[in-house]
Nucleic acid binder design. Structure first.
Lengths: 246, 246
DNA sequence: CGTGCATTTGATTCGTGTCAATGCCCGTGG
DNA sequence: CCACGGGCATTGACACGAATCAAATGCACG
């Protein structure tokens, strides 16, 4: 419990030093923890954006429906992530979001975001920085898809999740659980389910990773990184010091 | 001049109502306008992120270098855009940026961003909202690339630029200037230069658009929109009213 | 301990990449 | 003002990665 709680705080603390007042405000981000079951829809495209959520435990994903009813997976969230920080500045949700596993979320009304911006510039900056980090991850993924073939895309995905989990203190060295189907991964990577399966097997034969039904293990981080042109720098780049002298 | 100045203000005003104090602070965003020539590098990957820029006139783009020295185009900027709002929350630049045309930029030191967050929550929110909008555009582009073929990608690109220019008051009905090469467009879309050329010609034969060397004209907006599953809603979605009651 | 969904495997087709050559526009310098 | 040159755009031929269709296998969950 305390571990999960620290996920979010830790996530934001990466960006900024917090004083007591900030910590109190931040704590509000995590009051009202709620248990949610797998498949729970957190919000829906087009609806009013009236809440954001911190994900204390469990995984979730964002998607949009295409006219045939299927879901185009757009983003994936792990414990510690702040969900909806993008959507909530708009009047209407741009995506839908859905839990991938059972988990604990902390809903946080939009008005309180407003309150935080008025009350703690530092915390506001922290949230803004968290949003910028998410944007960077997405940009990274865009570049991945724009310039890499299936093998490299998979390597990239494997490493992105690896570092994101590592960052929140999860044990990833012996592989990490991946509560999402290959179909969903294939949508995130812009390749077909079938081709994903084949190519992952190929990577396994090459000794770069090991996969089981719901787990993924990084075996050769160097070759994976090289294949995907992946450098973890940006996952560790801290908040601009020029913004920290409050 | 006044027109260009209004671009940025207008851009942010879309997000938020400003009082005198805010307008004064915002004006600081646009003091110190500087003429820059085509090909000027605004910042470089890895360098300290010490400035952001508002683009008063001219076009620019963001890129990363891949090891063979070529540039992977990552983003494109039009007049009125705020550049580096993503990068500046990090200590180091994640991308490089370069002018596509001659233009006027207004450099804005990071510390002043800090100052704005401390001074005007409303303006801080406006900047955050502008960042969220950029993220949404990128997300949109990611989905485009993940789920559409070459034809749809081109349609999507055509419309994205169309609406972005329209939003800042440019005349786009008779086509708009596009100061970027097909090679660069092809990188933004994740297809080869050759295939882009072919497919654009196809779209032209279908009567959806007209292209000349440096201009692009939307001929059949409905069919383009349908092809790319593009809805402009999100370009017009305003700031969440729940964030406006200062 | 089946039953349905997820994954794997095989065969074939299609879109797109690559290589190479040509043509065209435009800026440059004479 | 015109001729030249070099990048940019177009076109053709071919190869290959990845999509699709279809069927079989294997897990996981009730």
């Amino acid at each position: 419990m305390d571990h999960y709680k620290s996920c979010v705080t830790q996530n934001l603390s990466h960006h900024i030093d917090l004083n007591d007042e900030d910590v109190r405000l931040l704590a509000e981000l995590e009051e009202d923890p709620t248990n949610v079951k797998k498949h729970t829809e957190l919000w829906e495209t087009g609806r009013a954006a009236e809440k954001l959520y911190t994900l204390r435990s469990g995984w979730a994903f964002a998607f949009r429906r295409n006219e045939d009813g299927s879901r185009q997976v757009m983003d994936i969230y792990v414990p510690g992530d702040v969900l909806g920080i993008r959507d909530v500045t708009f009047e209407h949700h741009y995506t839908s979001a859905c839990m991938l596993t059972d988990g604990i979320i902390c809903p946080f009304p939009t008005e309180r975001l407003h309150y935080i911006f008025g009350r703690s510039p530092k915390l506001a900056m922290g949230l803004h920085a968290a949003a910028a980090r998410q944007q960077m991850i997405i940009m990274d993924r865009l570049v991945n898809v724009l310039s890499h073939d299936a093998k490299a895309r998979i390597a990239h995905f494997t490493l992105e999740i690896y570092y994101r989990l590592k960052r929140i203190g999860a044990d990833v060295e012996n592989g990490y659980g991946l509560p999402i189907t290959q179909k969903q991964i294939s949508m995130l990577l812009g390749i077909s389910e079938v081709h994903l399966s084949r190519t992952m097997s190929e990577l396994e034969e090459m000794g770069l990773l090991r996969k089981t039904r719901k787990k993924l293990q990084v075996l050769d981080i160097d070759r994976l990184s090289e294949l995907a042109r992946f450098t973890p720098d940006r996952f560790n780049d801290e908040l601009n010091p020029l913004l920290q002298t409050w």
